[in-house]
């Protein structure tokens, strides 16, 4: 009989106004407890100012096998980068 608490993924915003970042996981019976536990485990040394928790089963993800078709096409599109364009020095900073 499984009475295991569900798994939650924890995201923390650091001190510097950055986006929330995945820091780890934990088990908790509900969202409130997940946040309390995340606070106790993942912000013990001033690591954050805000916490998100998401139950792990709600996260959709790409499959490792799709890596090629999804991400390789952008490799050849060098013109999407500013360094692709040679702008003469006389123009000044751009």
């Amino acid at each position: 009989m499984s009475n295991e608490w569900p798994l939650w993924e924890v995201f923390i915003r650091g001190q510097h106004g950055l986006s929330h970042r995945h820091v780890g996981s934990l088990h908790a019976p509900d969202a409130d407890m997940a946040i309390k536990n995340a606070r106790d485990v993942y912000t013990r040394r001033n690591e954050g100012v805000s916490i998100w928790v998401v139950e792990a089963r709600h996260i959709a993800a790409t499959a490792p096998g799709d890596k090629g078709p999804l991400f390789e096409p952008s490799e050849s599109k060098v013109y999407r980068h500013p360094t692709f364009f040679d702008i003469p020095d006389e123009v000044g900073h751009m």
């Binding site: 499984s2 295991e4 485990v41």
Partner: peptide, 25 residues
């Protein structure tokens, strides 16, 4: 504080094991 950290270490590691398909329980 040190002993609390160790509980956290246990958690991080159980979580890593769980990504391989074995539950903590």
């Amino acid at each position: 504080a040190k002993v609390q950290d160790e509980a956290g270490h246990g958690l991080y590691l159980y979580s890593a094991a769980e990504t391989l398909g074995e539950s903590r329980d």
